[in-house]
Design a protein around this nucleic acid. Sequence first.
DNA 1: TTTTGAGTTGTTCGA
DNA 2: GTCGAACAACTCAAA
Length: 482
Amino acid sequence: MTTLVLFRHDLRIADNRALAAAAARGAPVLPVFVLDEVSPGTRRLGGARRWWVHHSLTALAQDLARLGSPLVLRRGAMAAVVDGLVAETGADAVFWNRRYDPAGRAVDAGLKESLRRRGLVAESSEGQLAHEPSRLRTAGGGPFRVFTPFWKAFCAESGPRDPVDAPVALFPPESRVASEALSDWALLPVKPDWARGLAARWTPGEAGARKALESFIEDRLAGYADSRDVPGGETTSRLSPHLAHGEITPRQILAALDRREIAGSPADREKFRRELGWREFSWHLLFHNPDLGSQNFNRAFDAFPWTGDSPHVAAWRRGRTGYPIVDAGMRELWRTGWMHNRVRMVVASFLTKHLLADWRQGEAWFWDTLVDADLASNAASWQWVAGSGADAAPYFRIFNPVLQGEKFDPDGAYVRHHVPELAKMPPRFIHRPWEAPADVLFRAGVKLGETYPVPVVDHEQARRRALAAFETARGQHDDRSV
DNA sequence: TTTTGAGTTGTTCGA
DNA sequence: GTCGAACAACTCAAA
């Protein structure tokens, strides 16, 4: 009598409801991580997340070994892997935490059906969200499409349920079950090893997640409502990659925010709660719109003439657009696997509006390079910026990269850090080096077009071109507006 | 059923 | 330099 517990995107032992339920049976527990990149519709993990998963699994394996039941690693299609393990161990039950992505849901539904048909126990528990996406409904019974009403419903909902503790101990199965070797999975980059910057910034794993939460609450929650928009310096929670891998849950975070003695004003806490709310909203949208990552949420955008050419898009990816705030963001992303939220909006607006590149190109790049790449947030946010999404920004809202830089990075600390060739530019010109007089450029050691690019597009021209493109798309698509 | 109020994050222009 | 309006309707969600 053994219980299999499947780990997928829930690399933790605390507030792991499937693990807790399995431990409560009092029978042997076999924890299994399944790397499934072959089931239909499954999206291969991006490079940055592969690096993260490698280290997070290392941490999880240590925690489970300490509890008494070592983690088993298997690779392959979920259903086949589970069937194989059931046959191998004679397990009578399989427990897991629910997934909410379309492919995962389909696989798990099939798995549950097939296990139960054969008389096995198959149980799923609440997964990575504070509230099940199917639970929050409008008065009319439908899903939400606008954030504010969703957020009101979210806040009116009781709970979420309290987090559950990690099991104190686990019994292993009687006979040892073979595990694949993590190193055989080759999740780490080799040639070139681009992950050094990631290792310097992040501590993957559940302990790292707990520490990130505590340091955020102690050091950065006070003042968060205002400081969160400043990309230079550490002002945000930095919890996103831990959430993306299930090393911590929204239940745990919300519970910590409710502790009485913590720092931060009610406004700070509310602001941060809302950020978690946006994550929940994105999953709500994806749950009810399975093709959110590939199709325009607003289908009127199907007529939009994306013409962004590849040299410009390549310059965007490499942080060589000539707009310092954009380049700083793209280089922060490449080096650390993460980008400040404010800057994500600026670079996304730049790609879709200044360069007229399809938001799906940006979504794909972020998927590959972000350690916090989240299927729902990534898709919903790209569409929001592009204008095609739910409750999206009006199309005429085109970020001016110079003004955004000067407003949120006034002394240029963020740009200086990530774009070192501009480090000596005075604040007055750091966000607009092409306007600097020759002697200023000379003293800063900047040669435009040599040490730092001239802007790939002119802001004013690009803005007009984007507005015109929206007009065209609107005309082409019957009378429906874009 | 119809009506009503409202909608994350901005920019530009002219008074 | 500051401020308010315009940008463009559309559709969501609830009364």
